[in-house]
Amino acid sequence: MVSDQDDVVVISEGLTKRFGDFTAVDNVSFRIRAGEVLGYLGPNGSGKTTTIRMLLGLLLPSAGQSQVLGFDSVDEAEDIRQRVGYMSQKFALYDELTSFENLTFYAGVYGIRDPDELTATINLLGLENIQNERASDLPLGWRQRLALATAIVHKPTILFLDEPTSGVDPGARRDFWDLIYELAESGVTILVTTHYMDEAEYCTRVGFMRRGRLMAVGTPTELKESEVAGAVWRVHCTPLLASLDFLETLPIVRNVSLSGNHLRAITEEKSSAQNLEQALDAAGLRDVHIQETAPTLEDVFLSLAGN
């Protein structure tokens, strides 16, 4: 396996993992270029974590191969692990130790003894005020930051973040993404998994996983253009469920979903709002109001899953 682009830092070719007769990861291929933030998006159990574990050489693939920074994931796993940072879903923190002690421990694992480097990491993540608190006493948002600190204390060039924002409040999520971008700006390549669609909007490129398969990869804009071919409409009307059932029968409607107090319909072509309005009116549905809206990554997922 030779990379055809100098700046490709992760290559996955046909990665597959089977557990018994269950295929957790099914023929997954993608590349990550230096400096990218690649969002790996999918529900629980779709194969995101298994893919990361194979890339890092923590799990042997059933088929396929991968390279990280030019090192083979199976034969040169040690070389990879020295150079990458990994924040697993279950933060690997020592509850009995303080934040500072946790950080010192991880730095030691990577042979870092210089106190200035520790201080730099503490400052970067704003951990100054919690240095002496035990990890078990920290709220989830701070544990998450500390876990990130332990993953970057050795200044890795690639960072693998597995569901880092799961369960933290929206404010902490945004702050965390701010940190991700700060790291990306300083040249770190990032692969981050999430099941929040809105977070995927922040990524340079996004990959959609479902049932072990990588359905599509691209920039958010590319995916919206390629996967949501027609137009997206906000449809207000009553009764809601009858309207939904009716829209599903219309040939011009590719997908229709419930969205808050209204429906969201994706049409095949740039058909006019009038067409939809007339059809709904003719079917006896009331209070019809239709408005075009911009596609989201959730629309992309629903379109991909529907195909």
Binding site: P43, S46, E298, F301, L302, A305, G306
Partner: peptide, 9 residues
């Protein structure tokens, strides 16, 4: 929580 948009729908 954690299920895909199709299932949530």
């Amino acid at each position: 929580s954690g299920v895909d948009p199709v299932t949530r729908q």
